[in-house]
Design a protein around this nucleic acid. Structure first.
Length: 107
DNA sequence: AGGTTGACAAAGG
DNA sequence: GCCTTTGCCAACC
């Protein structure tokens, strides 16, 4: 029994994202694998998340280790601020070192 | 009911 | 290392 698969797919994705510990980040593909669907759906679900939801969507980034928002946008700035507050470090290219902060999942 | 879109990923050129 | 193509699956129009 992994997650509440009785719920909708989005809810499963949200739960998976909630499992990400502070100070770590996960890529879409990882979440997708956890819930058993394609990364696109994860991205769509993230966009569907509301501020009222208790989902740390900011800890979910793309496989390049970068924030999936266009730089200079509100979402980008906010997400970067939160991640920095959680201890995530950005390099010169504004990328996150997945070697250190990459979430190992349920490993 | 059907076509398009999407905060993506992996492989190929 | 960058751009293009393919796969992917659910939500949205």
């Amino acid at each position: 029994m992994k997650f509440s698969e009785k719920k909708n797919l989005y809810d499963r994705i949200f739960e998976a994202v909630r499992l990400i510990p502070a100070g770590s980040v996960a890529i879409y593909g990882q979440i997708a694998h956890l819930v058993g669907c394609s990364p696109r759906v994860v991205g769509y679900a993230m966009h569907s998340v509301s501020a009222e939801d208790d989902v740390p969507w900011q800890r979910v980034i793309n496989s390049k280790g970068k924030i999936s928002f266009p730089e200079g946008s509100e979402g980008y700035d906010e997400q970067k601020a939160i991640l920095k507050a959680e201890g995530i470090v950005f390099d010169e290219m504004r990328k996150i070192d997945l070697k250190k902060f990459g979430w190992e999942g349920l490993l």
